[in-house]
Design a protein around this nucleic acid. Structure first.
Length: 566
RNA sequence: CGGGGUAUAGCUCAGCUUGGUAGAGCGCUGCGUUCGGGACGCAGAGGCCGCGUGUUCAAAUCACGCUACCCCGACCA
């Protein structure tokens, strides 16, 4: 491909809307253009990348025995009403009416549609198991679309759904998909991690998310460097402390702490660490008041709390005063008779600081057993933090951030039951199918890959998904017959040899060409100029860095073959 | 949804406080000079100042309404 026949639309400055590196670079490189909130045009350059991602996903899915099909993006309301998700999905679902005032939605996912296919088409256990997938545009009306294609409303997703006679078969396919996903992300050239995920209300026995590791990721992942344990921080169990509570060393005393309403202010004021403080959070469960106790440096995990109090909400200042007798900002567990739920870590605290239930005062040197009873209700209600022991007992947890690009799920029979997707078993009896589902955020992967691969000059694409593998920067293309001939010849040769090659034939100044080619992230660059051609040589530069190398023109093809494999 | 902010040339932004009829840089077009890391000169094109209603002799500028877009949003007691 020649630049003069292609469409490069690079920008020196990024539009103000973008804050994330990958979003800025995708706009600057001209991969995408915004059409509306959460809606993006994929420009020719960007589409090449997207298609390469799709191709790898498709190849690996096929290899795993999954069968590609294609379902409509617009789906009738009746199917969603059968499972109740017409209501459950809520405003995230884009609902539309046709000319006859019939209800439809733009599919946010396709469990209902595929289950409808299964119940109509599958009769016998002999047909199972089956794994169908599609690569298709989805729409979810996100509350706040952001980060470009990373959290867009319309996006491309690969979604697969498997059907089974029993759980054992489902688990088998789940394992195959787990491996397939690992293969896909490895081939894509991404650093990723499979993490345990919430099985939540949907039930089922297993679920893993696949995360591309990046500091800007929206999810926090707790992982153990000494084992393969990894879980979303929301799910990672914070174990009970193993060290016993220290004996009281201080007497309890009331200290005047004017204005110290937050843990941070309190620590500043009393010159203590957050670990020595105890914070109390007031929540309401229906009409019942509860006081939650957490160590000052820990955060409440609402998902965990919800398993104890569902639903719950934070108490209003009026409710706090009514139940505690003290003002918000200075509440504590000493001398009160309300329901108390303590985090596990709290039970190991001694000589701690907490609110005195008296505006402007805290208590210091507080100890369980002496100044107040040890809480009877103790639970894991906090987020795991770095340094916590790993739940699998092998070392300490670390926290990193990730971008969720894949999710595999053992669904069980939630949808097949609701929609009566059954088959006849060996005994001629109707049985409900077991289902699994497996998603990959195809368009999000492009953003995630750039998030993981970029520098101050632009994008650094992994070899496998770069829009072009090799760029030829022809210096003086417009005015040097020698350069023109050599560049075109090299371009044709490389193309015939199977390289995805882009020839910059614009005759631009070298700086302009280099800047553009680096911005769009092409992994390999060959520079052809009159100077080198006199010696029969060209220059090679890898996008990832490394020294500029001189290569004999005749050797370029072999050289690139090695470079591309490396 | 709640809070905050922005809207002026293709992009990044100034002008608005103090009303007087539109600006810069980049990009784009033409010509010339340049030519191994985003060149330079000259000449151009390009704007219903988001939309609407008011105030005024006069509105990008002031007021009100609308729309779009962006940012933040448990608690840290």
């Amino acid at each position: 491909m020649r630049v003069s026949q292609f469409f490069l639309s690079t920008l020196k400055e990024a539009p103000a809307e973008a804050e994330l590196a990958s979003h800025r670079l995708m706009l600057r490189a001209g991969l995408i253009r915004r059409l509306g909130s959460g809606l993006y045009n994929w420009m020719p350059l960007g589409l090449r990348v997207l298609r390469k991602v799709e191709a790898i996903v498709r190849e690996e899915m096929n290899k795993a025995g999954a069968l590609e099909l294609l379902m409509p993006a617009v789906t009738p309301a009746e199917l969603w009403q059968e499972t109740g998700r017409w209501e459950v999905f809520g405003p995230q679902m884009l609902k539309i009416k046709d000319r006859h005032e019939r209800d439809f939605c733009f599919g946010p996912t396709h469990e209902e549609v595929i289950t409808d296919i299964a119940r109509k088409e599958i009769r016998s256990y002999k047909q199972l198991p089956l794994n169908f997938y599609q690569i298709q545009t989805k729409f979810r009306d996100e509350i706040r679309p952001r980060f470009g294609v990373m959290r867009a409303r319309e996006f491309v997703m690969k979604d697969a759904y498997s059907f089974h006679t029993d759980k054992a078969s489902l688990e088998q396919t789940y394992e195959v998909m787990y491996q397939t996903y690992s293969n896909i992300f490895t081939r894509l050239g991404l650093q990723f991690r499979a993490v345990r995920a919430d099985t939540g209300a949907i039930g089922g026995t297993g679920s893993h998310e696949f995360h591309v590791l990046a500091d800007s990721g929206e999810d926090a992942i707790a992982f153990c460097p000494d084992s393969d344990y990894a879980a979303n921080v929301e799910l990672a169990e914070a174990l009970a402390p193993t060290t016993p509570r220290a004996e009281p060393a201080q007497a309890m005393q009331k200290v005047h702490t004017p204005g110290a309403k937050t843990i941070e202010q309190l620590c500043d004021f009393l010159k203590v660490t957050p670990q020595q403080t105890l914070k109390a959070l007031a929540v309401m469960h229906n009409d019942a008041f509860s006081l939650l106790l957490l160590r000052g440096d820990h955060e409440l995990n609402e998902i965990k709390l919800q398993k104890i109090l569902d639903p719950f909400r934070f108490a209003t200042p009026e409710e706090i005063e009514r139940h505690m007798g003290g003002k918000a900002g200075y509440i504590g567990p000493v001398g009160v008779s309300v329901n108390i739920i303590a985090d596990r870590a709290v039970t190991a605290m001694s000589d701690f600081v907490c609110g005195a239930n008296d505006e402007g005062y805290h208590l210091a040197g507080v100890n369980f057993g002496r100044d107040l009873p040890l809480p009877t209700q103790v639970a894991d209600i906090r987020n795991a933090v770095a340094g916590d022991p790993s739940p699998d007992g092998k070392g300490a947890l670390e926290i990193c951030r990730g971008i969720e690009v894949g999710h595999i799920f053992q669904l069980g029979n939630k949808y097949s039951q609701a929609m009566e997707a059954t088959y006849l078993d060996e005994n001629g009896q109707h049985q409900v199918m077991e289902m699994g589902c497996y998603g990959i955020g195809v368009s999000r992967i492009v953003g995630a890959a750039i998030e993981q691969g970029n520098d101050d000059r632009g994008i650094i694409f992994p070899e496998a998904i770069a829009p072009f593998q090799v760029a030829i920067a022809a210096i003086g293309f417009d005015r040097s017959e020698t350069v023109r001939e050599a560049a075109v010849k090299l371009h044709d040769e490389l193309q015939n040899a199977g390289f995805d090659v882009l020839l910059d034939d614009r005759g631009e100044r070298p700086g302009v060409m280099f800047a553009d080619l680096e911005l769009i992230g092409i992994p390999h660059r060959i520079t052809i100029g009159e100077r080198g051609l006199k010696e029969g040589q060209v220059e090679y530069q890898a996008r990832k860095g490394g020294e500029m190398q001189t290569v004999a023109l005749a050797e370029v093809q072999n050289f690139l073959k090695e470079a591309c494999l490396a």
